[in-house]
Design a protein around this nucleic acid. Structure first.
Lengths: 248, 248
DNA sequence: GTCCCGTGTTGATCTGGGTCAAAGTACATC
DNA sequence: GATGTACTTTGACCCAGATCAACACGGGAC
């Protein structure tokens, strides 16, 4: 996932969020060219599956625009979303040939991909890239662990507030909105997808959204367009300590 | 966390699970010596806190022996364990000066530590170390995500079975037990710690342990000594698909 | 227009696991 | 031995959120 820091870096290079230009600021020119060589773009439509868990995956890459989800499913159909991929987030794992999760585009999606084998070679020879990937992975690990607290200990209302606060924060960062004042954004997820992220049912999600609306914590226009009049209030509802972490 | 692969590596060097000997098989001698220089050991007694969330942390390290936990706490006291650290697991984060979680020794604990600044320098100059850390971090990320499924979607009984199955598996790997047949181990956690890991209350943990015992899925001698007559049965109870993943 | 169909809301009811309370067990320490 | 303390078990009751069910809202396709 992503926090302010990685986003700031992202803005170095609008086109390609793994931002190899920045990674390679200290690299040799031929390394830069090598990355350029193994790079390609893939586009997906909303609803399309990028890759199924268990499928062979011979690329790694990152989201350029749009949103994708990472989900795990049990045999009986229970599903849990384990990651929300926004622009600049990394997908795939050097050193592993098969996908561990289902990756699904929830909006139209553009990804910047690198062929896996040559990319792995580059890592082996280019410390900056390995370091950068390590940083990004550690950020994701922190986000996953923060989410464990949400899943394990928060109430339904707190879960919803947590999710909204993450999306609001990331959306604001992406769109360079000021830190203060009301925030407005479109939910990129259906109620069902929200439920899968939060370990709830879609009915509970719907009810809690209504409750937050009734209590004035959020305003809703239509089903998806959300305004948060007071971010502090929302974060209070989420049970976050003041600083709010840097979740997802 | 850890899987078979990282464990195998661990066994290269009993003393120091970050296994710098293996990391540095391809390094220069002076790099090896440099690591040796910045390395030191710390011992903790059961129950002692290694570090508090928010404290300054100027080392990274890994567990040599014993068990530690990583926990997050909300202001109102709700706590969620976000990691279980067994021998060879890594603690700390290059590039960050403060601890993000409480780290507590649940048994007597020995850690092998490296001073953070020189360690970070080494990473920058030694691709193998950065790569190895990346691998370990990706393993931990997978474990965290698998745990998200447990927290978000599994029933109390499945949660307990999942935890037991992880511990049984790791214990077997550590002690080189055969893959088949009954497995016996000591629970390294109190009921309360199990509850904090699973997002349950200690009462529910106790009840479900009793239920699993009554149903013959496990045998209990005293409170902590567990025998699993049939690992497949246990994993079925955990709701895992056959292969069982490589959790935690 | 109207017929879908995917999405979202709301109500009624049920239940898994939380909460509160009491008692049991295993070790220390005196 | 008695007393204490940390941990665990078990029971009784309750409630947040799941489940089941009905209905509402858009926005294509025809």
């Amino acid at each position: 996932m992503l926090n302010e820091r990685s986003l700031a870096v992202h803005n170095d290079c609008e086109e390609c969020p793994i931002r190899h230009r920045a990674v390679c600021a200290r690299c040799e020119t031929d390394e830069l060219e090598r990355l350029e060589e193994i790079k390609y773009y893939r586009k997906f439509e909303a609803g399309q599956t990028v890759i199924w868990s268990g499928d062979r995956m011979d690329f790694v890459g990152s989201v350029v625009s749009g949103i994708a989800t990472l989900t795990q499913t049990m045999e009986d159909g229970r599903t849990q979303m384990v990651g929300l991929l926004l622009p600049s987030d990394f997908v795939g794992r050097p050193g592993r040939a098969t996908a561990a999760y289902d990756v699904v585009a929830t909006t139209d999606l553009v990804m910047c991909c690198f062929r896996r084998n040559p990319f792995e070679e580059m890592i082996a020879h280019t410390p900056h890239i390995a370091q950068r990937l390590l940083e990004m992975t550690l950020d994701e690990l922190d986000a996953a662990r923060e989410w464990m607290l949400v899943l394990g200990r928060k109430t339904a209302r707190e879960k919803i507030a947590s999710l909204l606060s993450i999306i609001a924060r990331r959306d604001a960062t992406l769109n360079m909105q000021g830190a203060d004042g009301p925030r407005t954004f479109d939910l990129p997820l259906t109620r069902e997808a929200m439920a899968d992220y939060l370990g709830l049912t879609l009915e509970t999600v719907s009810r809690q959204m209504s409750a937050l609306k009734k209590d004035g914590v959020i305003h809703l226009e239509g089903k998806r367009h959300v305004t948060v009049p007071d971010m502090d209030r929302l974060m209070e509802e989420a049970g976050d300590d003041s600083d709010g972490g840097m979740l997802v």
